[in-house]
Amino acid sequence: MSHELWTAQLDAYLDGELDSAEMAKLDSHLRECPACAAEGLRRLQWKKNVQSAAAQRYGADPKLRERLQKNISPEKPVRRWWPAYAVTMAVLLLLAGIAVLREGSRQERNSRIISELVDLHVSTLASSTPVDVVSTDRHTVKPWFAGRIPFTFDLPELQGSPFELVGGRVSYLEQSPGAELIFRVRKHQISVFIFQERAIPKGLPNVGPVDARSFHLEAWTHNDLRYFVIGDAAREDIQALSNLLKGQM
């Protein structure tokens, strides 16, 4: 094959357009023919020069790209009022649900606490030793608790009232120690529980007077102490004893 025929194939060879058999033949020839090899190198260099001069010769305005991008991007779904409304409603319903659950949980907790206090009161009444310190003297009862519970409290002067102090005992609510004072009014016994506020589950409101299993209850907080007055006496008696206790505060 003449030089002309070989070199006629050089462009196709460099463009990668020869089949493998033709490629192998030309490869072989280029290794044996310095003239064709030199011509091949010059054309390869030329291709690179053209590519270098022409590629990325003209840079597009970025604004053109932005315009195109905007034009060809799939249309975003039109925002309608109802999805936002639905989301808002869903959030509100969720919040309401949470509030209901929290309220339900809070009520359940309150109910449990009250029930526990009633149980404590009943167990005290049923006990053969309802009180650990038997005294009608508040100045005896109060010091007895010193060292037994982590706080102190004041007791009211009962003289002139229908109430009589029976005594006291250490009681526990939610594993926290507190004072249980037993008062008598006529033939009814009333328990007054005093616990530290921090020992009581948060959110437990002041209640009362409320009825629980035929018992009357009143509760309040003072000086980080939580007071519960509970008994089967008349509601007015519960209220009156509560007022006495509050009055000396």
């Binding site: 006629a8 011509e39 010059r42 260099q45 030329w46 020069n49 270098s52 001069a53 010769r57």
Partner: peptide, 25 residues
Amino acid sequence: DPALPAEVQTPETILIDRTSREIMQ
């Protein structure tokens, strides 16, 4: 016509400096 062999007299191996690139362009 069938592809013709290049009658190259220009120095393809010139370094494609800025001026050469402009000429090429």
